[in-house]
Design a protein around this nucleic acid. Sequence first.
RNA 1: AGGGGAGUCGCCAAGUGGUAAGGCAUCGGAUUUUGAUUCCGACAUUCGCAGGUUCGAUCCCUGCCUCCCCUGCCA
Length: 560
Amino acid sequence: MTIHSHEVEASNFIKNIIEEDLKTGKHQVIITRFPPEPNGYLHIGHAKSICLNFGLAKEFDGICNLRFDDTNPEKETDEYVQSIKESIKWLGFNWDGEVKYASDYFDKLYEFAEFFIKQSLAYVCDLNADEMREYRGSLVTKGKDSPYRKRSVEENLNLFKQMREGEFADGAKTLRLKIDMASSNINLRDPVIYRIKRAHHIRTGDKWCIYPMYDYTHCISDALENITHSCCTLEFADHRPLYDWVIAHLVKANLLTSHPRQIEFSRLELQYTITSKRKLNQLVTDNLVSGWDDPRMPTISGMRRRGYNKEGVQLFAKRCGISKSPNIVDVSLLEASVREELENKAPRIMAVLNPLKVVLTNFDEYTASRSAGFHPQHAQLGERLVELTREIYIERDDFMLDPISGWQRLTANSEVRLRHSYVIKCDELIKDATGNIVELRCSIDKNTLGKNPEGRKVKGVIHWVSVTNAIEAQVRLYDRLFTEAEPDRVNGKDFKEFINPHSLTIVKGYIEPVIISSNAEDCYQFERLGYFVADRCDHDSSSNKYVFNKTVGLKDTWKK
RNA sequence: AGGGGAGUCGCCAAGUGGUAAGGCAUCGGAUUUUGAUUCCGACAUUCGCAGGUUCGAUCCCUGCCUCCCCUGCCA
């Protein structure tokens, strides 16, 4: 947890509302909720919402529920329920009491539907989908009343009962609220609140063949849970009048005691990625990624596998803020947050991903090795011996035959510091038949272990690894999944056209032997390369399987 | 065109009748056996545009412009 004193947490309009409600005594305690539909994995946008809802409860000493909005059995699975729970817990939040499900309220919802029928505020409609669309009107034209709108209470009660009992085919009838077909708000043009759908439900099995719709279910579920502040994204603002309409009638009839307040905020958009469950699902089903937890996915499980830690994701959410304005956040904000939370925790070790062999020609039995700290600022992370051997690998990128100006790494006849070891000088280049440099012959300045050379300054420091004792590992280098900052907003093109062909590169890496005892999800900084994490699924040091994912590179301010 | 929402630095985002917080990014400079970190410093005479009210407006009023969402028996 990094809370910088200079980084004042911005207030936001939702907090202002809550503070006011607490101050005026409208509420003694606030209750929020995170209400996912279990039809996919949670992504970065949900992470923002989770941090908001659970964060609000934490900050104001309130309560936050987890409630699955499971009203559409055709799309919902238990796999998704499990993954969602796991993602929330991993992010560091705990819901209050038992997990709730909208389906817990199906009986109540049915009862209330009968109430609306009895009030003559709901009716069974026989219009099919096409007809209903036609009767609904358009954005600019009013709708017209359904011919079934005037059915008697008795008939409606009976028909609704028969709907529940399976007397009618799927889609043959719906139960609709009787509001206003002429409303300029289409959500108020007699919205359907129950449809017939013979689908197996993850919780209620085959008990029901009619299922309530979101608009009807969500507000009632909120009220039943005494939610005080129901935060959702902007596209639901148009639904608020319906939310309030349903609740107000039920409260007036004493069937409900609380009237939650729906508050909308803008959803998070992140550059070079997509946050649409439907589209993410497409990437998975089309095998364009390895799964929902592919490290390139903006899903919580993907970010976790990528090595993003929960503190980093939380910091990111905090820095994004909450507002109602459209926003497309820079990836640099996410990456900076993740780096910042890894900086003080990740042990530093050395790894070479693109090796160039170096032979230390004057290496002998008196050549010493040093013990090096795992972190330059935090000695408590411990240290290990970094053993120098006659043959080492350095990064190919750290040698340049014709160095560009400002180059401070290795070049012919120049010196460089081997991190945690001696200063070496490149004396000779070995080339293969085609002229490629395949090896460097260097000499050690034996008077430079743990001290600066005398009479000159060697600025460059490069990382290296021993040829004889480095451990080979598979290293997966990740880049952004899309080549386009807004892949789903390019005129008439499918977002899949912009998948970055280089978003995954797999290389063989040579890493310090300390990783033989590493566990899955251990994070390291490979010095000068970036942060890496032992893959959650494939890394298994007990069977000598070393697999690391690149989490994020180090900041690189060197301008070439 | 009807309804809803939004326009404050490259990206987020506070503020609100009294003269523009903060973060990310960027650019300088110091320290550094990671060109990392850390540390200092710079970075909106201006708040979509045009009028008006006012001693004074990003904030109030009027008009305009731009963007997003809404016509599932999805959520």
